[in-house]
């Protein structure tokens, strides 16, 4: 019994036809059409040499630093005698500086937690693989980052100075509840300062990458400003001074 070969057309078992159309698949081609020729080198010895050179460089730098500057060691710990100023390690000075500008739960717990959660969420907020592996991704990204950084470098020291000389929690004591002076007002003021560049950006139909560039730059530069202020500009009584003009012979470098 002979079957009509046409009914089998796509699935022919004919020995003359060795290929068949099974399915059409969407996706990128298996040949790398968009890529140039592979530009690779053997990791050995190039990468190994780079690592050895970096180790030597870092080792020498540390050795030189350690030969020239001694690690600080003060008197033995005495719980009955407070140091003035009492400072946290330098990388927590941003936090300690924040404490000067609002309610501790807001400044030392809520805002830092939000920052860490935002940083963790970055790759899930900006989840397009496009533009990876290039500084600032685009020229526009570079401009956005630069403008935001300059703005933060101006706005944050100004906020610290204003809040230091006209502190709402002192000036409004007895006029409004502490809750307003220490939480509501700082949230509104800081919220406006931090979100202003984002609001401006959102008017230009930004990509997700540009949004996280603005927010991260704003938070990162602010953290740097607060850390530097706390470490270099806070002296006895945790008051603001110029680093080279501290009273009582105090030097910020004592606290390294």
């Amino acid at each position: 019994m002979k079957e009509n070969p046409l009914t089998y057309a796509p699935f022919s078992e004919s020995s003359k036809k060795t290929y068949t159309l099974v399915e059409l698949v969407k996706g990128s081609p298996t040949v790398m059409t968009d890529h140039g020729p592979e530009d690779t080198v053997f990791a050995f010895p190039v990468v190994a040499l780079i690592e050895i050179l970096l180790s030597l460089g870092v080792g020498l730098l540390l050795l030189f630093m350690s030969l020239s500057v001694n690690a600080p060691l003060e008197e033995i710990a005495n719980p009955n005698q407070t140091t003035d100023p009492a400072k946290a390690p330098w990388y927590f000075m941003g936090l300690q500086e924040m404490l000067e500008h609002g309610h501790p739960t807001l400044m030392a717990v809520a805002l830092p937690s939000i920052m860490v959660l935002f940083v963790l969420a970055i790759p899930y907020l900006d989840n397009s693989p496009k533009g990876a592996g290039k500084w600032f991704t685009t020229t526009r990204g570079r401009q956005i980052t630069r403008n935001t950084a300059l703005y933060a470098l101006l706005a944050m020291p100004l906020f610290i100075l204003m809040d230091n000389f006209f502190p709402p929690r002192e000036l409004l004591r007895g006029i409004v509840p502490d809750f307003v002076a220490q939480i509501v007002i700082p949230v509104i003021v800081l919220g406006i300062i931090v979100l202003l560049p984002l609001v401006i950006l959102l008017r230009t139909k930004p990509t997700a990458r540009e949004i996280v560039l603005v927010v991260f730059t704003m938070l990162f530069v602010s953290a740097v400003v607060f850390t530097i202020t706390g470490f270099f500009f806070r002296g006895p009584g945790f008051e603001l001074y110029l680093p080279w003009n501290m009273p009582g012979g105090y030097s910020p470098f004592q606290n390294l």
């Binding site: 600080p72 060691l73 003060e74 008197e75 033995i76 710990a77 005495n78 719980p79 005698q81 407070t82 140091t83 009492a86 400072k87 946290a88 390690p89 004592q254 606290n255």
Partner: peptide, 9 residues
């Protein structure tokens, strides 16, 4: 190091 710096930090 248990000095004043350490303790108060």
């Amino acid at each position: 190091p248990w000095d004043q710096l350490a303790f108060w930090a």
